[in-house]
Each structure stands twice: as C-alpha cells, then as structure tokens.
Simulated assay, not measured.
Amino acid sequence: MLAIAGLALAVAGGPAAAQDAAAWPTRPVTLIVPFLAGGPIDVIARVQAQKLGEILGQTVVVENVGGGGGALGAQRIARGAPDGYIFVMGNVGTHAYHPTLYAKPLYDPVADFQPVGLTTESPRLLVVRPTLPADDLKGFVAFAKANHATMSFGSGGLGSATHIPCLLVNQAMGVTVTHVPYRGAAPAMQDVIGGRTDYMCDSIQTAVPQVTQKNVKALAVLSGTRSPLLPEVPTATEAGLPGVEADAWNAIFLPKGTPEPIVKKLVAAVNQTLDDPTVRKRLDELGLSIVPPERRGPDYLAKYVKSEIDRWAPAIKAAGLKVE
C-alpha cells in the first residue's frame, strides 16, 4: 500500500512540478554574490540584477555572502534547492581555483552546479600604496626583491580572484611576500590606500576610481592588452614581467538539478540582459568585456569551467597553497 501511495504522489507531483517550472518565477529570486558589498563582483551583480528582474518580471534580490574567497557563497548554491529561486554569480575564484586550493573542497564546481552562462571578463590591475617608492613596474620589482621579507599584499580572501593573480606576480619576480586575506576586495583596497599593506591585484572596475583619485598607483595591467580605462598603464609583459596574465571571468550558476524549463528561461533572460544597451554601457564604463554570444550558454560554460580548473592548478600548486 505504501509503495502504491508513493507512486500515486509521484505521478500527481510530476505535472504539478512541471507546471511550477513553466510558471517560474512567481516570486522574487535571490542572486548570491559570494563576496562583501562594494567589491568588484558586487558592483557587476547589481548592474545586471535590476535589468534581469525587469525581464523576469520579479525582483532579483542581491544577497552578499562573504568568506572563504567566495567559497561560502558558492557552497550555499551547491546545497541549495533546485527550484530556480536562488543562484550565484560565480567567478574564476569560486569555480576554477577552489578544487585545487582546498584539501577538502566545499563543493565540486562541475558536479554540484547547473551552468547558466558566462557574463563578463576583466583584467586584474597591480596597484601599490601611494607611499611605495616606485612609480613603474621595473622599480617595484627592484624594491620587492630588496624588501620582500617585510612586505605584504592584500586580497579579497584566500584563493580569491584578487589573490591568485598576485601569486603569479610574485612568482614572476622570484619573491615570497606575506599574504593578508580580507573578507572582500573593498577592505583590502582600503588597507593599500592607508599604507597598511603594500599592494594588491584588484579588478579593473573597482581599482580605476582609486587610481584616478591618486589613492593608489597603478603599475601594470595583468592582461594580454591594455585597458581603455587606463591606456597609459602598460601590461605586465610590456613592463618586464612576461606571461603574467590573469583575466578574471564571472558567470551565473544554479543548483544542480534545476528543471530545464527554468534553466532555459534564465539563460534567455541573462543573454537579454547582456544585450541591453544600458547594461552594456555601464559594464563598458567599468572596463568589463561582455562575452560574445558564441561563448554564452550552459554547454560552453560547463566545458570552460573544466578547462579553467586545469589552467590554474599548476600556479596554485607551484605556490604551495592548500587550505586544510
């Protein structure tokens, strides 16, 4: 009798679940930003969330869940209900660095998420405290080699997208510098401005205002090309540290098992958001590159995450990083 009753419930629940998925969303949805408010990912998320809400016909609530270099916020999605009402803006830190960095990963970036699509990419910018006695990368390298034992650099958290790029810089310089992790990039930047740490590798969108206000000095763009926001700042390769490229990316992920109708509807809404002229203008002003249509969607993102895990593993292992 119990088996028959269970079967009856399953049959009854099937059409109802399908109907719920087709009607999604019928209430506000939550976009998790796995970092503190005011940081680079938070800025991007809030630009996109308003338009996304207009397209979906429901409010998109941005909720900041900081800690663990983004891992705690991402973990919440990995364990979240697959009903479409919660998703995350992940990035290279949460989905490419994490499985190599953690001795016991909090989640599997491939198996525990339903990819929705890449959204934006941006370079990191090497910035130093205003009182550091170097005005270009060559002078900074010389200073670091002479003083690395007493220097420190900040980041938005261990294993974050503002941490690993600076490891590449340190490896290229041949120095070991004390890392000071914060719960977000914003407080890390404040300590560079205040001279309590020497440098950081911040996102272009949050670093540029501090550079233009002369709160910090920009020494190099960690990318293959210069940024139109700071055309006078050379790439690391141009300035003498070849091969130091650390472009970061952002992407939307749902919990694994989210019904396909919901996934398709969110994919379409995200793409429509990225194509909106107002959103594109704002993201362009922030120095972000919107990924082209051929690099969007769940299939591309699923393959891309796997390739990025493989790409970053050697650098993390070479630095001897491991979170127990």
Score class of each variant (00 low, 15 high):
K51Y: 01
D191N: 14
A142Q: 12
T235H: 00
G297V: 11
T237F: 00
C166I: 07
D112F: 05
I55D: 00
Q50L: 12
A318V: 08
V11D: 11
A8Q: 10
D20N: 14
H98N: 12
V60F: 06
G174M: 02
A12R: 06
V60S: 01
L36V: 15
G174T: 03
P109T: 00
K51V: 01
R27E: 15
V291P: 00
A23S: 14
R295H: 14
G68A: 03
N91V: 06
V175R: 01
Y97M: 10
D83S: 05
G90P: 07
L229A: 09
G69V: 03
V11C: 10
D299E: 15
Q171Y: 01
A96Y: 03
M200H: 05
G57S: 11
K264H: 14
A319D: 08
A319I: 06
L266N: 06
L254K: 00
V88D: 05
H148C: 06
G13L: 13
E324D: 15
P255T: 06
E285Q: 14
R311S: 11
G53K: 05
V88R: 00
L31V: 10
T237S: 12
I290N: 01
L274W: 09
A5Q: 12
D275I: 07
A315R: 09
D275G: 12
G6M: 13
P40Y: 12
L7V: 14
A81F: 12
K322Q: 13
L241R: 00
V270D: 04
L241T: 02
Y97A: 08
A268P: 11
L219F: 00
V110A: 10
L266T: 08
Y107V: 03
V43I: 15
P298V: 12
I309K: 06
P231H: 05
G117T: 07
T225Y: 10
G117R: 02
L230R: 03
Y182K: 02
A23Q: 14
D83F: 08
I316R: 02
V127L: 03
L230F: 08
Q213K: 13
H163D: 12
I44T: 06
G90V: 01
E294P: 14
A21W: 04
A16E: 13
G6A: 14
I77L: 08
A251W: 01
L36A: 15
V177P: 00
T225W: 06
T119A: 00
R129Q: 10
M89N: 15
P277H: 02
P255K: 01
H98R: 11
L288C: 07
E238K: 07
V211C: 00
E232V: 10
H179N: 04
G73E: 09
Q190V: 09
A144N: 05
A239T: 09
A218P: 07
T30E: 12
K145R: 14
A146L: 10
T225M: 11
